[in-house]
């Protein structure tokens, strides 16, 4: 609701305030205020204060939260198109990934959320995800057999871990440290900054850089809120989102380098397994896409992109 001409927008997310993606959202708030000449004010609630990523998306649909930042993986249960990002080895390299996210394909997927009450504004880079484990290093997919691996709350993330031989267990991010420590799961998978900043390395001493997926984060706005904004406010919000996206890529690159150095310094054993066995194990996931032709088409277009 408005008071004295300014509109407060509540943005909730699950990361700690030290995380580079949080800093990008702070920047987003500053830019939105600037571009809207002070009519929009973004209030950030970090650290799952207002719920996990899945719960926050529901609150956008309900209309009590204005915005949130979630992993594209969690979006899949709400908007099927996002499932394409959970396909392993989808991108050839970092440049291919950046090009796809900036392209027509990227914005098509962001738009797809509209009919589900959650409109995407911009992608934030989230690097590549790899396995980290408590007791057993992962050299080949065979090492995953019999291990419980925490996955994001997404069907394709679960299918991927199963295809590699692991046993997938969806658990909210904020509960993961305890789950690892208590042995509810034997390992998890994430990008270097998240592995480092969550301090999961205090429990997991092996990080196997198989880089199976590169699932971006998405900044979402509730259509309840979007529909009430004036045209210039929408433009201001979109512009601020794009600028924060550019800013975030710089932050991310340096955060990744720093996280890898710090992980090595605290004694995490970093493994660099060959990727061919992993890629071969997940091949059936692409063959199984016949059931979801929309995602299959998207993945073909992405693979075909130069």
């Amino acid at each position: 609701r408005e008071d004295s001409g300014t509109r407060r927008i509540k943005l909730a997310h699950g990361l700690a305030t030290s995380h580079p993606v949080h800093q990008a959202m702070v920047y987003f708030g500053e830019r939105a205020e600037l571009h809207s000449k002070g009519t929009l004010r973004v209030e950030i609630h970090p650290s799952e204060q207002l719920g996990t990523e899945r719960e926050a998306i529901e609150l956008l649909q309900i209309g009590s939260l204005g915005m949130t930042k979630v992993s594209a993986s969690v979006m899949e249960s709400f908007v099927p198109e996002y499932g394409v990002f959970s396909l392993p080895y989808l991108f050839r390299d970092d440049r291919h990934r950046a090009a796809v996210l900036d392209s027509e394909i990227g914005s098509e997927i962001l738009q797809a959320g509209r009919s589900y009450g959650v409109r995407g504004l911009v992608y934030y880079d989230a690097g590549s995800r790899s396995f980290y484990t408590r007791d057993r290093p992962i050299h080949t997919p065979a090492d995953l057999i019999g291990l419980k691996i925490r996955t994001q709350e997404s069907p394709s993330a679960i299918r991927m871990v199963r295809a590699l031989g692991g046993s997938a267990t969806p658990i909210a991010w904020g509960e993961l440290y305890t789950a690892l420590q208590q042995g509810v799961v034997d390992g998890a998978e994430n990008n270097p900054p998240s592995f480092y900043l969550s301090r999961h390395y205090e429990v997991c001493k092996f990080y196997s850089l198989d880089e199976h997926t590169a699932v971006p984060d998405v900044l979402l706005v509730s259509t309840h809120l979007w529909d009430r904004l004036t045209a210039s406010e929408r433009e201001a919000l979109q512009q601020a989102a794009l600028e924060s996206g550019q800013f975030q890529r710089e932050l991310w690159a340096s955060a990744t380098d720093e996280a890898m150095r710090s992980l090595e310094a605290v004694g995490v054993e970093i493994l660099r397994p060959g990727k061919s066995l992993f890629a071969a194990s997940v091949e059936p996931l692409y063959e199984g896409l016949s059931g979801s032709p929309g995602v299959a088409r998207l993945s073909e277009r992405i693979k075909a992109m130069r």
């Binding site: 649909q61 309900i62 249960s77 709400f78 997404s154 069907p155 993330a157 267990t169 969806p170």
Partner: peptide, 18 residues
């Protein structure tokens, strides 16, 4: 009931059990 109809309208399923 609002919550139930919202989740059904948007076809939400749980991640592991579906």
């Amino acid at each position: 009931s609002n919550l139930v109809s919202l989740s059904s309208e948007f076809n939400q399923v749980s991640a592991a059990l579906g």
